[in-house]
Nucleic acid binder design. Structure first.
Lengths: 137, 137
DNA sequence: CTAGTTGCAAAGAGTTTGCATGGCG
DNA sequence: CGCCATGCAAACTCTTTGCAACTAG
């Protein structure tokens, strides 16, 4: 059957970071800088945690060298979806009942079962819109 | 003022691919394999076309080696949003009025101006759901 | 002729793999 | 003690940059 997961210092440290910041996104590099573990271990542990469903992998298309980011998966019970500002890169929660009807719409009208944890709505957040700055880059 | 865009064989070939497959996504590598142009040129042309708003850049978080993909931008006049199946990777259109209210909701309730062309809804398409196969990878 | 374009080669960032060592169960 | 985890170094993928030759306007 499946492999046994060992409890090690490195895995523990990494896991704690996500548990203590359930709403934050971290890149592999972020994590690497925060724990006492090798790069390889960080990547491998992140992969494992993803497979185990404990964290979720996201892709941010903001910069030139885009790196994946990882976040604690507390979407199981919450009715929210993520919004990412394409300008500042911040991640927000749409934590409301509307999401329910969103899912229902996609299911009934488009035969598509929306995956709340994978979907990210892109756009501009309030602050970035108010700044009105239109820097093309 | 802005730079003049030259009409070259390479740019032309690349552009034609997108125009002839307005609903398909291509990675830089795909394009590279389809035209007679150097890798650098492909990347640079794709960037240019993005800046000009002719195509759009997407990020696909499906595999291990994630590469960006590019698609013709026919979103200017259409009221649709994209749905990508996390299993088969196919891209669908949600081409309906609901999107309007979706945008309105995010704006009024969350102060977030949704970017239709960047946003991709992830989930499972009809076919993949019906197959019922739950392959973990 | 001039400014934008091409493409090779090389650099660069992010991520994965090979392999020997180390540690949990 | 066996199997999984660790981490260094090296490989690999995707993308960008430098630079000299080229070409559209």
């Amino acid at each position: 059957m499946g492999k046994i997961i060992y409890k090690t210092k490195q895995r523990d440290e990494i896991l704690k970071i996500f548990e203590n910041h359930k709403d934050s996104c971290f890149s592999a590099k972020d994590i690497f800088g925060m724990v006492d573990a090798g790069e390889t271990t960080v990547f491998r542990t992140l992969s494992s945690l993803c497979e185990e469903g404990i964290i979720e992998k996201y892709v941010s298309g903001t910069g030139t060298h885009d790196s994946s980011c990882y976040k604690y998966n507390n979407c199981n019970d919450a009715d929210h979806i993520h919004m990412m500002c394409s300008k500042c890169g911040k991640l927000f929660h749409a934590d409301c009942k509307f999401i329910k009807s969103l899912e229902e719409h996609f299911m009934s009208e488009h035969d598509f079962s929306l995956d709340r944890s994978k979907t990210v709505i892109y756009g501009l957040c309030k602050d970035c819109r108010n700044q009105g700055v239109n820097d093309n880059e």
